[in-house]
Amino acid sequence: MKSWFRFGRGKDEKDEVAVVEAPAAEEPRGGFLSKLRQGLARSTDKLSDGLADIFVRRQLDEATLDELEELLIAADLGPATASKLRQQFDQRRFGEVTLTQVKETLAEDVAAILRTVEKPLAIDPSVKPYVVLVVGVNGTGKTTTIGKLTAELTRAGKRVMLAAGDTFRAAAVEQLRIWGQRSNVPVVTGPEGGDAAALAFQALEQAKRDGVDVLLIDTAGRLHNKANLMAELQKIVRVLKKLDANAPHATVLTLDATTGQNALAQVETFRAMTDVTGLVVTKLDGTAKGGVLVALADKFGLPVHGIGVGEGIDDLQPFDAREFARSLTGAI
């Protein structure tokens, strides 16, 4: 079992990187695979049922391929990626196929796309404090993700500090403070409606003074098409760089799995504005298929660090391309 983050200096030194085992994952809580499978399988019933419908009855002709493409679209993969997968499928020139073959092949194709983005969040232990900025659209689960990440890092023996950078939404600071209490870590707060950048600056100063290992900065949710809110985010980054030219060392974008093709616009804009280094996909325990992740991987190739599969403190799991693809297509 691996953790969804690791300590190391990046991909070039992969061999020396010690993968940190998250203690919680070792507990016999059903394991993350079963939980993920549970969540994903539930959510992908439709796609795999659909697959069963098409292939039990027919040979692989044009009409069948049409239906396959539509099923992929219905799973939020988007028209472009769906059409690409369909063509790949078509080129194989199957004669008679069994359903299992179809699922396996499709899962392989999807996994091939996803594998390129399966990368845990690399936390460099030589950088202190390692600053992680968490950004995203409103209601995608930034604060909850920070809460879960804090728990995992604390268990791994790291000293964590939180910064309540969402000074806009009512009671957002309070929400983060409660998460901080759960893991018993300090939370730097400012007045509601205050300047988020100033707060981030203070938090980094304090994190340096106190010698913490990781500083997680929460931000207010913002729609990516609001120019001045995005500029505010850039200001946070600019201000952090005054104290540490490399900060933030990671910028994580949270993405709601129920989001459709708009996720492409979200990633594109956030990445252009704040140099997002990776994604966390939340709410994968619902009926949403998170299929847009395939479209995202295909288009941007941005690392996916973890997936959220519940509201509990331990419900953040590493992203596993093969597992995700197999659950999505029902190949498990």
């Binding site: 439709k46 679209i73 219905a74 799973a75 939020d76 659209v137 209601g139 709601d256 129920t258 989001t259 459709g260 093709q261 708009n262 996720a263 979200q266 619902g286 009926t287 949403a288 298929k289 299929g291 847009v292």
Partner: peptide, 12 residues
Amino acid sequence: VDAMTGQDAVET
């Protein structure tokens, strides 16, 4: 419902 929801909106 969030206007950005994908195909899952109607299911929900």
